[in-house]
């Protein structure tokens, strides 16, 4: 009898704590989603282009999206898309080469190389902005030609970000390689025929992050474009709409642009979410 009562008490306590958690989760979801809902609503607001103290527009319309179409936004979007696409391919190739080699091969310079890159990574990347800009300017890849310049710099230095995928390759048993080697496969065949098919999740993860990166690339892109609108990416271009003297004319257009930028990336991300989660979890565990 007594025992049963205690049991009931536990159950009630459990139900109570679950209810509390549900309430918490609902609050969290609302807080996390609200700003995005705000952006969506304000992108349809027609009655004014500046910031207002309410959320639901009084007049709905597509005026902001039409403004977007008539501005340089198309060019910025195309620029970013090209950078993202090309980087997704090249960065993936470079990072996989790097991480696969460092995970699988034992050669004399391996240890020193990894230590060297660890130390190199402690320098702030922003430090090198000035010289990279001057070098790009010398070969004519700044301002209106910023796109190839950004791709070049982004791809060339991407080898440093090998940690996550190396962690993944470390988990594929080495006995697989050795068995294939015994059967007479060359190292290249081992990579191509055995490892790559197994590495699908990390390949997709790398492609996804490499594709998403350029959409938020801001500082260096702004520096390289140097005020030439034709060389902007979306982040740099849309930032210029929110400066103190522009914001009152462009605020709602910014919101519309935000929706257009976020939609495809978010959909892509949600489709490939599984791989992303695998990647970040693995990366964190292996440091």
């Amino acid at each position: 009898m007594k025992n049963e009562k205690r049991h009931m008490g536990l159950k009630a306590a459990n139900r109570l704590s679950n209810t509390a958690i549900y309430i918490l989760l609902v609050i969290i979801s609302v807080i996390w989603l609200l700003p995005f809902v705000f952006i969506l609503f304000q992108s349809f607001r027609v009655e004014s282009t500046w910031q207002v103290g309410y959320i639901i527009p009084q007049q709905w319309g597509l005026q902001n999206y039409i403004n977007l179409w008539n501005s340089d936004f198309k060019r910025w979007y195309l620029n970013t898309f090209i950078i993202a696409l090309v980087s997704a391919v090249l960065v993936t190739v470079i990072q996989l080469c790097m991480s696969y080699t460092l995970s699988r091969f034992r050669f004399k310079m391996r240890g020193p190389l990894m230590r060297f890159m660890l130390i190199l990574g402690m320098f702030p990347g922003m430090l090198t902005m000035i010289i990279l800009y001057r070098v790009l300017a010398d070969i004519g890849l700044t301002q209106a030609n910023a796109v190839p310049g950004l791709i070049l710099v982004g791809v060339a230095s991407s080898g440093m970000g090998y940690y996550v995928s190396k962690g993944f390759f470390d988990t594929i048993p080495k006995s697989l390689d050795e068995a294939a080697r015994v059967d007479g496969a060359t190292r290249f065949q081992v990579l191509y025929k055995i490892i790559l098919p197994l590495a699908k999740p990390i390949v997709i993860y790398t492609i996804l992050t490499a594709f998403m990166g350029p959409w938020g690339d801001f500082v260096f892109a702004r520096y390289v474009a140097m005020g030439t609108s034709a060389g902007y990416n979306v982040a740099v271009g849309m930032y210029s709409w929110l400066t103190a003297d522009q914001i009152n004319n462009w605020y709602t257009t910014f919101c519309a642009g935000g929706v257009i930028v976020a939609l495809p990336v978010t959909i892509l991300f949600l489709c490939l979410q599984k791989y992303y989660v695998e990647g970040v979890t693995g990366g964190a565990v292996k440091g």
């Binding site: 979801s29 996390w32 995005f36 976020a262 990336v265 991300f269 949600l270």
Partner: peptide
């Protein structure tokens, strides 16, 4: 819901 906010640049 939470992950979606990671996707938005």
């Amino acid at each position: 819901i939470l992950v979606m906010t990671v996707a938005i640049p």
